[in-house]
Simulated scan of single mutants.
Amino acid sequence: MTPINAYAAQSATTPLTPFNFERRDVGANDVQIEILYCGVCHSDIHQVRNEWGGSIYPMVPGHEIVGRITKIGSDVKDFTIGELAGVGCFVDSCRECPSCLAHEEQYCDNGMVGTYNGRDKEGNPTYGGYSTQIVVDAKYTLHVADSLPIEGVAPLLCAGITTYSPLRHWNIGKGHKVAVVGLGGLGHMAVKFAAAFGADVTVLSTSKSKEQDALNLGAHHFAVTKDADTMKKLQGKFDFILSTISASHEYNDYLNLLTLNGTMVVVGVPPQPSVVGAFNLIGKRRSIAGSLIGGIKETQEMLDYCAEHNIVSDVEVIKVSSINEAYERMLKGDVHYRFVIDIASLK
């Protein structure tokens, strides 16, 4: 066992504070990673504060992890000591169900094992990346190119794959008119990918102040959703809408913006269910769907694509001691566009 320094939540109502625990020894199929950077995801807040229910305490959040391999197991062939590596939202799955066999482990029929706030096959709680080190099965570890700034790579392990996967699944590219709802951690990556794939991209936001940022990120158009006349003009204009916001909002307002056979995919998780009017779907044979991160194979594909096309997240690097302040700033939308913890500040 290896002693680890970390930050953890002890309950749903207390701030994150320093925490010490032990990682397992490296097994034959494991890699040990010295964590260098860990992104801060909005879902960290949801789970720390038990907003989704079932939270396990103490909780060490963090599932956007990039670091350097310091030890490998005897049966590991695909990784080497000293190599950069990444860990995303899950660290295991059943490996036998149809979803796992199709390289869609995130949809494991028996439940994937979360990088944190989960339980491993021995029933032990999993602890995430707000820590100095992690031990992971090599099958759930990702190769990270050394050509990109790794602090900007870390959020790709969640925000990146969460937006890359649906755009690829629905084959978005040249000739498609795409709207991205929201310009936060997820939204800014959706804009980068959709533009890189050749789509005509519009950002839909409640905040006029984000227009220049949207255009700088690669969007071709920007619309303020609070403007009723603008929303009316956009009805029936988009082939595909990616809804990235986690605040409560009216799905029906966006469904009406879809053209015939258009699809809106939800990747943000609002706190309350949204009522969807049947006529907003059947009138133009529209669809509403959801998407959850991506499997290991697709996540590696995404990382390779980003390395080839020089795509990273826009980040603000913080010390771990600033994490509670960062949570409050995230809730106010005061981040451009992802906080990333410099784990050296934990040592």
Score class of each variant (00 low, 15 high):
residue 73 G to A: 10
residue 74 S to V: 08
residue 75 D to W: 00
residue 76 V to H: 03
residue 78 D to Y: 00
residue 81 I to C: 11
residue 81 I to L: 13
residue 82 G to S: 03
residue 82 G to L: 04
residue 83 E to H: 01
residue 83 E to A: 15
residue 86 G to P: 05
residue 86 G to C: 06
residue 87 V to K: 11
residue 88 G to I: 02
residue 91 V to H: 03
residue 91 V to R: 04
residue 91 V to D: 00
residue 94 C to G: 08
residue 96 E to S: 14
residue 97 C to G: 08
residue 99 S to L: 11
residue 101 L to I: 12
residue 102 A to G: 11
residue 103 H to D: 15
residue 104 E to G: 02
residue 105 E to D: 08
residue 106 Q to S: 10
residue 106 Q to I: 13
residue 107 Y to D: 11
residue 107 Y to N: 14
residue 108 C to S: 01
residue 110 N to S: 14
residue 113 V to S: 00
residue 114 G to S: 11
residue 116 Y to Q: 07
residue 119 R to E: 04
residue 120 D to E: 12
residue 130 Y to C: 01
residue 133 Q to D: 14
residue 135 V to H: 11
residue 136 V to E: 09
residue 136 V to F: 10
residue 138 A to P: 01
residue 139 K to D: 15
residue 146 D to Q: 13
residue 147 S to V: 09
residue 148 L to G: 05
residue 149 P to C: 04
residue 150 I to Q: 12
residue 152 G to T: 06
residue 153 V to Q: 09
residue 156 L to H: 09
residue 158 C to R: 08
residue 158 C to F: 08
residue 159 A to W: 03
residue 160 G to C: 13
residue 161 I to W: 07
residue 164 Y to A: 07
residue 164 Y to Q: 07
residue 172 I to W: 02
residue 173 G to P: 05
residue 178 V to S: 01
residue 179 A to C: 12
residue 181 V to K: 01
residue 183 L to E: 01
residue 186 L to M: 07
residue 187 G to T: 06
residue 191 V to F: 00
residue 192 K to A: 05
residue 194 A to Y: 05
residue 199 A to Y: 05
residue 203 V to A: 08
residue 203 V to F: 07
residue 204 L to D: 06
residue 206 T to F: 05
residue 207 S to V: 00
residue 208 K to S: 15
